[in-house]
Nucleic acid binder design. Structure first.
Length: 565
DNA sequence: GCCGTTTTCGGCCCGACTGTTTTCAGTCG
């Protein structure tokens, strides 16, 4: 609602700072790790940075009565079909207001009409070229205005960088923006590169094979649409400014605003070319320069979301984030026994090549007909084969863990009996059906079972496809703490579940987490990088993840639950 | 609309590109 208010106020020409205040309020509420109702009941709304007296009153009114007077006042008489048009590139609030006032444009159809009949181009400060770029914006708007998942964007960005390196000589080159922060979804791909012959680099970039269409192209930057309809922005800077530009374009916006504010208080100015005192550039070649000069310890890109990382840096309490080299293995791997496509041996070989000391084979359980779930008999057969494979890999310091991804059925019971479960090294319990049926209760019951070690994909969301279960994550986390059950960070890029914010909350509650890639073939094992991205964005350290321990220590940890119950 | 402790009023990050202008407004990130 706050976001919508911001949109409408902007459309109405309201003071920009007020608009920004609403946008910021919207963002901090979305970033909350605790339930807003809990904070509200404790009377601590105004403790949230960005929420002042005015916003708190509006939240209070909404939570008390279910309506918000300000929202109704602001949006009164403004059709939502009109405000939706602000998502069209090159069409901003000023132009839209003009079209609304002069030409009574109220929706996409109207807009298309005034473009076709030439009346939009005749308005003041409008012309054919402007209308043309709005037309292009409409095409993009209609085709896809959804963010793409990290799992799609990252390989595409890597491809663009490879092509660019082949086409022209460049210096340092990196992804920037939300992609460098490894956010779960990406709006557009930002690439930054270092070079002296900027004109040539820009020119070659716009001619790459992957480029479908050029949106804009200037002396230092260009925007194109690449295969698949995603926008790619390239920015070229000279070596002395590369670090400053990398810092600047990595963001996020609120992080940068805060850092610049700190710089400003010290009489310094940060822009994408460096840190300046008056006219004098104090640094900018490397990203570290910027933070160092401003007096804020540098932090990893994944943390730069203005979620308290600058404050933590200043207080010396930044987390030492878990890294890829800390990871000993993967907890969630499917094999050819259920709906995976590779054998136990092939999976083991790949895992060894990744430097792992274990992977847990967790195929589906018997009720999962859709995924070739294993019967008790087949599961026992699989356990026997795992033992054989382990004998082969013994000398390499690697072992398969025998596991199962056991369904929590719609009636709340588990798909295998305890007699079966206790034969396994590791048990993941997951919900695959009955998404709206007492999900929280079913999960907490499953956690009370001493043989259940991990809850798989705890919210069930599929990025941009499915909302997830009706689950009270707060209660699930409480139960995870009480029963000493781990929660999964599912690294399959469509899931990324738990999310970064939920993972951080779980960490704060002292809950251990386990990354599982939900692999269905050897290539999927690489999705560990996405699970790791979530963990790092959730401020997780080595100790917070079960994956960072050796198999013997893991088995000890897993068995301890049974011993304690 | 938020925020601060040198301020409860007056700030609020900064610059590139485009197009319509002939000095700048609008949009974007």
């Amino acid at each position: 609602m706050f976001d919508r208010i911001a949109d409408v106020l902007e459309f109405k020409g309201e003071l920009q700072f007020r608009v920004l205040a609403y946008r910021k309020a919207s963002r901090v509420l979305q970033d909350l790790r605790d339930d807003i109702e809990t904070i509200w009941k404790e009377g601590k709304l105004e403790d949230i940075p960005g929420i002042g007296e005015g916003m708190a009153k509006k939240i209070d009114e909404y939570l008390s009565t279910g309506k918000m007077t300000k929202y109704e006042e602001v949006t009164k008489g403004i059709p939502s079909s009109l405000i939706d048009l602000l998502n069209i590139q090159s069409l901003g609030p000023k132009t839209l207001a003009l079209a609304y006032e002069k030409l009574r444009v109220k929706n996409l159809e109207d807009l298309k009409r005034v473009i076709a009949d030439g009346s939009l181009a005749k308005l003041p400060r409008m012309g054919d070229k402007k209308v043309q770029s709005i037309s292009k914006g409409i095409e993009l708007f209609v085709a896809s205005h959804e963010r793409m998942s990290l799992g799609i964007a990252l390989p595409l960005a890597e491809r663009v960088i490879e092509e660019l390196k082949k086409a022209v000589k460049v210096g340092r080159i990196s992804t920037a923006g939300s992609l460098r922060r490894l956010k779960e979804t990406i709006g557009d791909i930002d690439i930054l590169c270092e070079g002296t012959d900027t004109t040539k680099i820009i020119e070659k970039f716009t001619q790459l094979p992957v480029v479908e269409r050029v949106l804009a192209s200037g002396g230092t930057k260009a925007s194109v649409i690449a295969d698949g309809g995603i926008q790619v922005d390239l920015r070229v800077v000279e070596p002395a400014s590369y670090g400053a530009a990398l810092q600047y374009f990595t963001g996020n916006k609120d992080h940068n605003v805060k850092l610049r504010g700190i710089a400003k208080d010290k009489g310094l100015k940060i822009n994408e070319y460096g840190v300046f005192k008056g006219e004098k550039r104090l640094g900018g070649k490397d990203e570290e320069d910027i933070y160092k000069i401003v007096g804020v310890p540098i932090m990893e890109p994944e943390l730069r979301e203005d979620r308290g990382e600058i404050e933590a840096a200043l207080a010396g309490t930044l987390p030492k984030l878990v890294t890829r080299s800390d990871i000993e293995g993967d907890f969630h791997v499917h094999s050819i026994y259920s709906d995976g496509s590779d054998s136990l041996e092939t999976l083991a070989e790949k895992a060894v090549s990744l430097g792992y000391s274990f992977i847990a084979i967790c195929d589906h359980s018997k009720s999962a007909n859709y995924a070739g779930g294993l019967s008790e008999t087949t599961l026992l057969k699989q356990i026997a084969e795992i033992k054989k494979v382990n004998a082969r890999f013994k000398g390499e310091g690697f072992r398969l863990l025998a596991g199962s991804e056991v369904d929590i059925k719609a009636d709340g019971t588990l798909d295998f009996s305890d007699d079966i479960l206790k034969k396994l090294d590791v048990v993941i319990a997951s919900i695959h059906s009955g998404f709206k049926q007492r999900v929280t209760e079913r999960m907490t019951t499953a956690m009370k079972n001493p043989y259940v070690h991990i809850i798989g994909h705890p919210t069930g969301r599929l990025i941009s496809r499915r909302e997830g279960y009706e689950v009270d994550l707060g209660k699930v986390m409480e139960a995870a703490g009480d029963t000493r059950t781990a929660l999964e960070i599912n690294g399959f890029f469509d899931r990324l579940d738990l999310t970064d914010i939920a993972s951080r909350k779980a960490k704060e509650l002292g809950i251990t987490m386990a990354i599982g890639t939900d692999s269905h073939n050897t290539a999927h094992l690489e999705f560990m990088k996405f699970g790791l991205a979530v963990a790092r964005r959730g401020w997780l350290e080595k100790k917070d993840l079960l994956n960072t321990r050796k198999p013997e220590a893991i088995l000890k940890w897993l068995k301890a639950k049974k011993a304690a119950s």
